[in-house]
Amino acid sequence: MSGMSLAVGPRTSGTDDTAAERGQQQPSTMLGGVMGSLRVIELQLVAFIMVFSASGLVPLIDLAFPVATTLYLLLLSRLSFPPLHSTLPSSSSSSQEIFRGSTWFQVYVVLGTTVGLFLPLAHVLGGFARGDDGAVRSATPHLFLLSCQILTENVVGALGAAFSPPVRALVPLLYTVRRVFVAVDWVYDAWGNRAAAAAPQEAVAWMWFGRYLAVANLVYFSTNLLVFLIPKFLPRAFEKYFRMRDEVYAKTAEDRHAAAATVAAKPVESKKAD
């Protein structure tokens, strides 16, 4: 959601963990199980969300955005930020972690999953049931882009070191930027185009639920973009990448010096043999 699936690398085996690391992980075992369950639920929802999101309720620009973003990320991965894992020592490339989140950060991610995925999904399904085309049309682009982001994050996370840290960090950043603009349109539709006319109390409550949900998504993902992704997540990704690149250059220079020393030592050994 906020880049959490890309912030942590592949899980290591229990034999590689130290006793201190095990002690640090034990307090968050239960919350980690919740995060794993949410990941499974998200994957199950992706196919369903994309089916009804592609039924004419998503604008063309939002349909084209995931394709353009994927192509752009692939170009960056090949031309600007190629992966360096193949040339790094095993000790340097063993962890793909970009940002180590605390327990409170995981709670923050769960909150974002609830506000950004589950409640909008319930809002859209409720709109279908109530015949509220405005609510469905307003919230569906957000769900479509979020489902594409979840799918992309899981694919990139599964490939691991095949993508460099900057490319991995740009996935949630680019999608969040676009979804902030979509959330602005959602807020405008919910508050500007739906006047609170005389209606049953249930309909009024439903209308205010949609309004507050739109505002909550705008506030959460704007905060996520401006407070976490840009000032913290993205700089750490670039820092990790350039540190890895410096290690590659240092290792390459060391190998060249060693090879040159070996070549220079061979004539001396041959002369001694003569």
Rank of each mutant, 00 (worst) to 15 (best):
G3A: 03
L6T: 06
L6R: 01
G9V: 04
P10V: 04
R11D: 11
G14I: 10
T18Q: 06
A19K: 09
E21A: 07
R22C: 03
Q24H: 13
Q25A: 15
Q25S: 14
Q26I: 12
Q26E: 15
S28A: 13
T29G: 10
M30L: 15
S37C: 13
Q44T: 15
L45R: 04
V46C: 10
M50V: 13
M50N: 09
V51S: 07
F52S: 01
S55W: 09
G56P: 01
P59R: 01
L60C: 07
I61L: 12
A64P: 01
A64K: 07
F65H: 04
T69A: 14
T69G: 06
Y72L: 13
L73Y: 01
L74A: 12
S77H: 00
R78G: 02
P82T: 01
P82R: 02
P82Q: 00
H85V: 12
S86V: 11
T87Q: 14
L88R: 07
L88M: 09
P89K: 02
S90D: 14
S91A: 14
S91C: 09
S93Q: 07
S93P: 02
S102P: 04
V110C: 08
V110E: 04
L111V: 13
G116F: 04
L117E: 06
P120Q: 04
L121P: 05
A122T: 08
L125N: 00
R130A: 14
G131C: 02
D133C: 07
A135M: 10
L143K: 07
S147T: 04
S147V: 02
